[in-house]
Amino acid sequence: MDRRDFIKTVLTTSLAAPLLIGQKMGQPTLGLYLISASPQKELPTLLDELNNLRLLRGRRFAFASAHPQQAALQAVLEARGWKEASPNKAELLINFAYLQQPARPSFTLIQDGRIRDLRSSRLYSLWQKMQAQPAVASLTVFSLLAAFVSPRPAKTLIARVRGEVIERLPLQRPTRRTVDTGSGRITFIVDAGQVKVVESTCRHRVCVASAAISLAGERIICAPNHFLLELEGDTWLDAVIG
């Protein structure tokens, strides 16, 4: 598929997100975009090529969304020694979406935000065969590294009471602080780049139960004490939930 067609078809789907995030973050990304009604037929040849190019890092796969050919794809992968795993353990994440408009069957490998030329003769004949088929709207994305973005450690801790900054602490210096917030007392420790609340006089103690935080954008909130710990640093996140 040429660059223009790829942009017109694939980038209009939600499945372009990992690609765009990876590009934005300067992360290594690798995604195989396959427009086909029966991707299980083309997958063996494509996997061989990726293997020859030493682009496969493991043999665990997972489906990130329901796929109309899930059982067939699973059978192809398992026959070639792949094992199904949880998506957070898999080296190959399979995603599916419908294109807004049908397109000629094709495959495109995107590495680090750029289309990578695949020049083997086997792939050329596969390409020719696919191009002769009628247009389809099924897009399968095989993300190899594309789905994984690295978090960024924070540099500074900011402690607030009722919205006012009461302290700014470097995360690399171990310390223990107890703050009287006017509504209660709360104690937190900073150690090895992480922050954790260890004691609080509040009711539910959700703050004490919260996991340690270390990444830019993460927060620990103690609402009864009107107390907030937040980590400052480069972040690509607009909000944090969970």
Partner: peptide
């Protein structure tokens, strides 16, 4: 699109990012 970090339920850090 808005990038929303989803916290990991057990470990420190994020499970992933929603766009």
């Amino acid at each position: 699109a808005w990038r929303i970090g989803l916290k990991h339920p057990r470990q420190p850090g994020f499970l992933g990012v929603l766009e």
